[in-house]
Design a protein around this nucleic acid. Structure first.
Length: 477
RNA sequence: CGGGGCGUAGCGCAGUUUGGUAGCGCACAUCGUUCGGGACGAUGGGGUCGCAGGUUCAAAUCCUGUCGCCCCGACCA
């Protein structure tokens, strides 16, 4: 028989990255499509990744004193319209409920695309005194945005996310929170998702509808496109004025409050796939993997193999999620299956190993085989998992560094980004006309003005006038 | 929204040109042999051919409409 490819079902990345992505998402069992256009079914394995992400991020929120709440999914039209920029930004993509049963509603209800208005309504009632501040609320929910084109995890009509909403006595406190939350996102990404993020500020053009300032974490995918992975917003007192959120300060004066909001979504799962995945399928960082290790017994029918495998599972089971696959599929089939699913570590155990009192560990990220004594396996596995987590981060960081370039002029950007996509650092005059011209003619957008600035030159790459800031440019998802 | 392609078993497809009993591979079920990188044999279950009309003795096949999906543009946190 001719030599078979390891995973016939997955289109290779080099051939077609978009198809590779869809193949992985489906074959790894993360999602299925539903009968509603642009909506996806999160299957157990995909949802388990989200649950891990949710649990670990929520823990970091709680440490900051943030409390979870749950808001209704409906927003009355009149409420949505209270803040002008906000409604203009979201109006084109909201879904409306016009009927309740057979009755036409007196006022139509929008299905939340985001919940600023609902939180503001609540804060207007709750906030009376400086003693009530700050209020740090968050909710885990789904939102609906009627997008024209959709892709699993990256852009769907309905998606899961968390949205934090805070209200503060001072502008400084609100601004600090906006940056604090961005740091929480960035740290979480590098420590748990093994994805390095560029932290920075959005331009006027790209900022959130209704925000005074928007900050972002941007990551680079394997194919050189950027992904906006999370945003935090400083609202100033704009929403407070629109919704009349006032309190009495220490001097008994009526003043407006200051607000923020911030969110990350299931899009982060898309980032994990596109940053770490390879041609065999998904590669999950151990910190986020629902199954950290899978035990594949070889020649299971031989005496003692299955018993030994169960023993190994016991030794590891106390501290982590381990799967023992004792189905009667061939070992080779299982190897491929769990590689496709991105399980970080495979533990092989057969008659030959039993003779020698050993097991074989195989790393998903680099294929390395490690032969270890069966006794004391737990510590060894923990160590290997930590190594995998670390090297996935380093690999992603190297990839980003190797695909980050500096450009001085417009033509240089256009040529280079066409030849090889990635992050492009350049100086910019802060003029929206230049920003727009770059987008139209190169397809690249300004991802952010990074916190870590470098002075590449004095001149804007587009118009040649005096430069105001260094920016990151990229094509995006 | 514009241009192109596709809807036939869970998945991938053939059959449509020229109307005449709905097929193949994988997957699934049972039994046996296998088991260190996607095993093999035997038997078996599963379809109102996307949906709605129309033409016809007869429609997966021809006609009209409609819905959905994919690709390329445009748009979009």
């Amino acid at each position: 028989m001719a030599k078979k490819k390891f995973v016939e079902e997955i289109t290779s990345m080099e051939e077609d990255f978009g198809r590779w992505y869809t193949d992985v998402v489906k074959k790894a069992g993360l999602i299925d499509y539903s009968s509603v256009r642009g909506c996806m079914i999160l299957k157990p394995y995909g949802y388990a990744i989200w649950e891990n992400l949710q649990r670990k991020l929520d823990k970091r929120f709680k440490k900051k004193g943030i409390q979870n709440v749950y808001m209704p999914m409906f927003i009355p039209e009149s409420l949505l319209q209270k803040e002008k920029d906000h409604v203009e930004g979201f109006a084109p993509e909201v879904a409306w409920v016009t009927h309740g049963g057979q009755e036409k509603l007196a006022e139509k209800l929008c299905i939340r695309p985001t919940s600023e208005t609902l939180f503001c309504e609540l804060y207007a009632r709750e906030v009376k005194s400086y003693r009530d501040l700050p209020k740090l609320y968050n909710q885990w929910c789904s939102v609906v945005r009627w997008e024209k084109t959709t892709r699993p995890f990256l852009r769907s009509l309905e998606f899961l996310w968390q949205e934090g909403h805070t209200v503060h006595a001072t502008e400084e406190d609100a601004k600090r929170t906006t940056i604090d939350m961005l740091n929480i996102y960035a740290d979480f990404s590098s420590e748990v998702l093994a994805i390095p993020m560029i932290k920075g500020q959005k331009t006027e053009k790209e900022k959130f509808a209704g925000a005074r300032e928007t900050y972002t974490i941007e990551s680079l995918m394997h194919d050189g496109k950027a992904l906006q992975s999370g945003t935090t917003h400083h609202f100033g007192d704009g929403f407070a004025r629109a919704f009349d959120i006032q309190y009495l300060d220490e001097n008994n004066e009526q003043v407006y409050a200051w607000q923020t909001s911030w969110g990350v979504s299931t899009r982060l799962v898309g980032a994990i796939i596109m940053v770490h995945g390879d041609n065999r399928g998904l590669v999950l960082p151990p910190e986020i993997a629902p199954v950290k290790a899978v035990i594949v017994p070889v020649a299971m029918h031989k005496e003692g193999v299955l018993e030994k495998a169960k023993e190994v599972k016991e030794m590891l089971g106390g501290s982590m999620e381990v799967l023992l696959d004792d189905t009667d599929k061939k070992p080779g089939w299982k190897f491929n299956e769990y590689e496709m699913m991105g399980v970080p570590l495979r533990i092989e155990l057969g008659p030959k190993d039993m003779e020698k009192g050993q097991v074989i560990l195989v790393r998903r990220d680099n294929g390395q085989k490690i032969i270890v004594p069966a006794a004391g396996i737990s510590d060894r596995v923990q160590k290997v998992l930590r190594d995998i987590q670390k090297s996935l981060y380093e690999k992603a960081l190297n990839h980003r560094n190797e695909n980050t370039f500096s450009v001085a002029g417009f033509e240089e950007l256009a040529e280079k980004i066409e030849a090889r996509p990635g992050f492009f650092k350049a100086m910019w005059c802060k003029d929206m006309e230049c920003e727009e011209k770059i987008r139209e003619q190169t397809g690249a957008t300004i991802r952010c003005v990074p916190f870590e600035q470098e002075k590449l030159s004095d001149k804007c790459l587009c118009c040649g006038k005096e430069a105001g800031a260094m920016v990151y440019l990229a094509k995006t998802y």
